[in-house]
Design a binder for these strands. Structure first.
Lengths: 152, 152
DNA sequence: TATTGTTATACTCTATAACTATA
DNA sequence: TATAGTTATAGAGTATAACAATA
């Protein structure tokens, strides 16, 4: 029987009373689980955000999608490149403005998204089943309030 | 009067119903606000986590602190280097194991932490005042449950 | 003049592998 | 053999600045 190293008992002190730290730990747990479940699709949370927004806003430009997600438009290039390489999304020339690209899901992308969102919702369920009664609604409301808080 | 570019109306679709996305947006908001408030201390959320854990667990090794925070021990090196350069934390040779370093707050670090935690708690208040009644306790509980969920 | 997509660049985080000194 | 700290390295993610094409 090999010697077992005992991890030290850690006092989390202030961290245990800070919502910011709880928020971070919960988000890390959520994203790790998401990545695990969606790795078979080759999809990360970031890629999913872009794909989902294009799905629900076909024809929007890269900059519009980037702004909606709070990303810089320069970061969109490699993301769209990757989704295009997966044949799930395509750039089309904009008819109204020749500077911009209109983004669309491909036919294959529509099928892909249908399967993907099913898996994402299963993942969501995995966490939602931890909640009782009206907790889900309360959490959703509060997280929206947190996100909306603009620091002066 | 300069021409005003009107941002397109975006339909957030599925994202609006996914707790994972709400969680991410809330956390980004929280951390941006934290960084803003604590920039005068030269402290990021990551640095604060280490400093706080050393404060409440004086004499622990780098690896113990790293494990408690879910980080790799290799990532601790530059963090501890930075906090040591700020004269708020110090490595001392461990008496029981000459391979490891015991971490402590310096005298200056104790004062620093006292001022820092005051600011951090003000920051926390800024978000907590968005909550009514027993919401804070519910959120804390739920986020702990989310964090504890281990994906098989 | 301003904006779109793009490239180049850089900085932070994070993770892995390998080294050394100790255990 | 295994572990602690370290180094080197590499991959994401994110942000800024500058450029060409277009508005």
């Amino acid at each position: 029987m090999p010697k077992q190293s005992v991890p030290p008992v850690i006092n989390y002190g202030d961290l245990d009373n800070l919502m910011g730290y709880k928020l971070r730990r919960a988000q890390v747990s959520f994203f790790e689980s998401f990545a695990q479940r969606c790795s078979k699709f080759g999809i990360t949370p970031g890629l999913f955000g872009v794909l989902s927004l294009v799905k629900h806003n076909p024809g929007q430009t890269q900059t519009a999608i980037a702004n909606a997600l709070g990303n810089d438009r320069s970061a969109m290039v490699s993301v769209v490149d990757r989704l295009e390489a997966m044949n799930v999304l395509e750039r089309k020339p904009s008819v109204s403005d020749r500077r911009s690209h209109a983004l669309f899901l491909t036919l294959e992308g529509e099928t892909f998204y249908t399967q993907l969102i099913e898996e994402v919702k299963k993942h969501e369920q995995q966490f939602m089943q931890l909640l009782a009664g009206d907790e889900a609604k309360i959490i959703a409301d509060v997280l929206d309030r947190f996100a909306a808080l603009k620091t002066s």
